[in-house]
Design a protein around this nucleic acid. Structure first.
Length: 541
DNA sequence: AAGGAGGAAAAAC
DNA sequence: GTTTTTCCTCCTT
């Protein structure tokens, strides 16, 4: 099951792995282009696990500058991160020409991401032109965590959920260039002419380097506060790297758990008359499921549930554990865990049923987590799942469209931009509709532009597609719902186009925004800044 | 000048 | 009835 992420803790010369329940970071990186930076950021969140003081610096990188691609091959998770600031944000703080970072790794990718972040994205004094591959004070895993089948990862929320909490990362200021030693700069590829970090080169040469240096870095890495903060439990390294025999030992347990989960899912599906595939749930079915889960686990009831979780199933499935907890501090984690079980169960169901790899079911992007589908291909499962074969098609197509957009980030014309929300609306926006509009705003899968869209929804749509609209409107602090309109004229024009109001301008648009103050949809920011607005919770979710 | 705040009224839904 | 649009005045940056 991949709902746990493996982290390395660097402590002296020993390596140990820790498990963490949340997976949002990896999701974000792998699935959604608009959340790629969050994904990277969340990595830090996971590894460092403390306060993060340099968010503003980090945010100065636009989404456009970051391409994250992933590949799942040879039973390994390979992660590639490229950051290209060539077309980048022309901030004085980032006078960056071309920078490329690239790495591929297996499960210890986080380790490198961490370095990557600390030197290129977050460190306030380190523009991306001077990226150093910071040396690891301990060996990197060469071993590959063998996965019997491809790892599929759960999708990431398109905009909000990979967001790191500002309290989550700290010590970024520790990562300054002077901490890194020259010899490791040789990891920069000598042949490219670009600052291309060749991780392989680095890996090959790591043993040649004694570990007496980088005291600050090592000291930081030895800080294990993140373990406590994230409830990380030590996991013996051998358990993960011990090879397939270990896997075999736990297989019956997992299989049993899956069977149990499956039965539970089946029963609930029958009772609620909902699909076993959370991606297919409508908004009201999501409410049914949440309430059912609350009852099942005897949780505290959730007032305003439909406002806290207005998503349809597809969107709900993309929310991270963190997001659930943010919305429902008491029970969010349980809800999320339960949803993960449903997702995994369904994927397992589908994979067995199809007799194919998971990607044929979930698609390359929906990436639902699987409990290592090869682990439990029992006849019981097959028998139980015959009636669920043809689910999962329609939502794949939608996600696929988004992936297509990601893979070919062609500059859109202004007219195209106005159409972008049309594509996304069915999957993302109805979920944000206020309760009182559910009836006429949430027809599922219409695929048409909602003429009833609210301004705040529209703004969130724009915010959710930073690659397209990042120059017009962008988040300043996603966690707080603070955003800035960078190009008021353009935003107003887009809004006017959407509403078929040719005379729309920013003056009118801003008046509408101000109406939200007393409605509790938006609020004035603490510090008044021009063109900066702030959503109220939970509208920013 | 551009934008922010908010009143008022009309229009749109 | 609610939301948005339109127009407005006054104020701040």
């Amino acid at each position: 099951m991949f709902s746990s992420s493996a982290f390395k803790e660097l402590s002296q010369n020993n390596i140990s792995l820790y498990q963490q329940q949340t997976i949002y970071d990896l999701n974000s990186l792998l699935v959604d282009p608009s959340s790629s930076t969050y994904g990277i950021d969340n990595f830090d969140l996971s590894l460092l696990g403390s306060d993060y003081h340099q968010f503003d610096n980090y945010q100065q990188l636009k989404f456009d500058d970051i391409n994250v691609s992933s590949d799942v091959e040879r039973n390994n998770l390979a992660l590639s991160i490229e950051i290209d600031n060539n077309n980048s944000y022309q901030s004085p703080a980032y006078p960056t020409p071309i920078t490329q970072l690239k790495q591929e790794d297996t499960l210890d990718w986080k380790q490198h991401s961490y370095y990557l972040n600390s030197t290129s994205l977050i460190s306030p004094i380190s523009p991306a032109t001077t990226i150093y591959s910071s040396p690891s004070p301990c060996p990197t895993f060469d071993q590959v965590i063998k996965q019997e089948n491809h790892i599929n990862l759960p999708p990431s929320p398109p905009d909000s959920n990979g967001v790191p909490s500002p309290q989550s990362i700290h010590h970024c200021e520790n990562f300054k260039i002077e901490q890194f030693d020259d010899s490791y700069q040789t990891a920069l590829s000598p042949s490219t002419g670009e600052n291309f970090i060749d991780i392989n080169y680095y890996l090959e040469n790591r043993d040649q380097k004694p570990q007496q240096d980088h005291q600050v870095l090592r000291g930081f890495l030895q800080d294990t506060t993140f373990q406590r903060k994230h409830n990380l439990k030590p996991l013996p390294l051998e358990n993960l790297f011990g090879g397939l025999s270990q896997r075999g030992d736990i297989e019956p347990v997992i299989s049993l758990a899956l069977q149990h989960a499956k039965l539970e899912v089946q029963a609930t599906c029958n009772a609620l008359k909902i699909s076993p595939n959370p991606h297919e749930w409508t908004e009201s079915q999501v409410q049914l499921w949440i309430n059912s889960t609350i009852k099942q686990f005897k949780l505290d009831s959730l007032p305003k549930c439909e406002i806290l979780f207005p998503e349809n199933g597809q969107m709900l499935a993309m929310l991270s554990d963190e997001e659930f907890i943010k919305r429902a501090p008491q029970i969010g984690s349980i809800l999320h865990a339960q949803l993960e079980i449903w997702k995994a169960t369904y994927v397992d169901i589908s994979s067995i049923d199809n007799g194919n790899s998971l990607t044929s079911v979930a698609g390359p992007s929906s990436a639902v987590p699987t409990m290592s589908n090869s682990l439990s291909q029992t006849s019981i499962w097959n028998q139980m799942l015959h009636d669920e074969t043809d689910v999962s098609d329609d939502d794949d197509s939608e996600v696929g469209m988004e992936i297509d957009m990601q893979s070919s980030p062609i500059n859109k014309s202004e007219a195209d931009m106005t159409e972008t929300p049309v594509v996304k609306t069915p999957t993302t926006k109805p979920a944000k509709t206020p309760k009182k509009h559910h009836t006429h705003l949430q027809k599922k899968g219409s695929g048409t532009t909602s003429s009833h869209i609210h301004l705040w929804q529209f703004l969130k749509e724009l915010l959710a597609s930073p690659q397209t609209h990042g120059t017009a409107i962008r988040w300043l602090d996603r966690t707080k719902g603070i955003f800035k309109i960078e190009d008021s004229v353009r935003v107003a024009r887009l809004w006017g186009t959407r509403k078929n109001r040719p005379a729309m301008n920013y003056d009118k648009l801003s008046r509408s925004i101000r109406q939200y103050y007393k409605k509790g949809i938006m609020k004035k920011t603490e510090r008044s800044q021009r063109l900066v607005y702030q959503f109220c919770h939970p509208y920013s979710l």
